[in-house]
């Protein structure tokens, strides 16, 4: 189980990396943490002719709150989220979610932006990006563009990123204290790919949901917000009945994938459960 041959390029500046992508993005592949890419290469399911190693591009190694955004540089590792990277509900959500991403040693290498670029349907970070409305900052020699998460994930392992582009940064909105967040995932074992997961962010005033963001991952070929469930919740008091209605709306709306571990009916059932539990978690102890 050894990778096919490739040539290796390790630029130390972003410009040099973008130059490599410009000249050979098609048969090349960027490696950051490599925790998804290297297994695929070991199985020879991925066989890039050229490997562009991002790890030497120090200018992309940052993680900071700035201007209402959490700015996540392309080299920020999962492990950087073990403690909340910013205050408020966004930070709390990220620190909760990261514990579900594979395992501790994997989290030391894998990167947030790498997960976004890889776009696995069961990626927790992709779900968070879709739910919170992340901006993906993509750069090429031709310039920079910002892509909303809603437009970024196209299908399983497929994104709006062009071959000559690199994700240099992902920006997450920092929610204010009026928001509550919750996350629930089910996987067969701890650390396995989730079969279904839900992330929620609710703005609650006086016990009533004023805004709702509900995203479901692992169920369809890419994570997405659930408008029907969000509508079902907005204007409702924070209560089990409203959560159940939103969970039912999710179950009714998703078109689940099928695989070894879950058929469509079971995945739908799980999506209902993870949604209800994520909502309960978000509002736990809020004393509606």
């Amino acid at each position: 189980m050894k990778p096919a041959p490739f040539s290796y390029h390790a630029p130390s500046t972003l410009d040099a990396m973008l130059a490599l992508l410009a000249e050979g993005g098609e048969d090349g592949k960027v490696i950051a943490g490599g925790q998804s890419l290297v297994p695929m290469m070991n199985f020879r399911l991925a066989r890039p002719a050229r490997l562009f190693d991002l790890n030497g591009v120090a200018e992309l190694d940052f993680l900071r709150a700035e201007g209402g955004w959490l700015r996540i540089g392309a080299l920020a590792r999962h492990a950087a989220f073990h403690r909340p990277p910013c205050g408020g509900p966004t930070g709390a959500l990220l620190a909760e979610v990261v514990r579900h991403i594979a395992h501790y040693p994997i989290r030391q290498r894998g990167t947030f932006a790498g997960s976004i670029a890889h776009a696995d349907p069961a990626s927790e970070w992709c779900l968070v990006a879709a739910t919170l409305g992340a901006e993906i900052v993509a750069r090429s020699r031709a310039g920079e563009r910002r892509i909303g998460a809603g437009d970024f994930f196209l299908a399983s392992l497929s994104t709006a990123l062009r071959p000559d582009e690199l994700i240099v940064e992902v920006r997450l909105p920092i929610l204010d204290a009026g928001w509550r967040t919750g996350f629930c995932e089910f996987s067969r074992r701890v650390g396995d790919f989730g079969i279904a997961m839900t992330a929620v962010a609710l703005r609650v005033e006086s016990g009533v949901v004023r805004e709702a963001r509900i995203g479901v991952g692992g169920v369809e070929d890419h994570p997405a917000r659930q408008p029907a469930a969000e509508q079902a919740l907005v204007g409702q008091p924070v209560a089990a009945r409203a959560f159940a209605a939103a969970a039912d709306a999710v179950a009714g709306a998703v078109r689940p994938m099928e695989d070894l571990h879950a058929d469509a009916a079971y995945r739908r059932h799980l999506a209902r459960t993870t949604t209800r539990r994520a909502l309960e978690q978000a509002c736990a102890g809020s004393g509606s």
Partner: peptide, 19 residues
């Protein structure tokens, strides 16, 4: 294959020697 690189545990099968 877990080893410590820069003091943290990583999977040595998922890292290239050159890295």
């Amino acid at each position: 294959c877990t080893v410590l690189v820069d003091g943290v545990p990583v999977r040595a099968c998922l890292m290239l020697a050159v890295q």
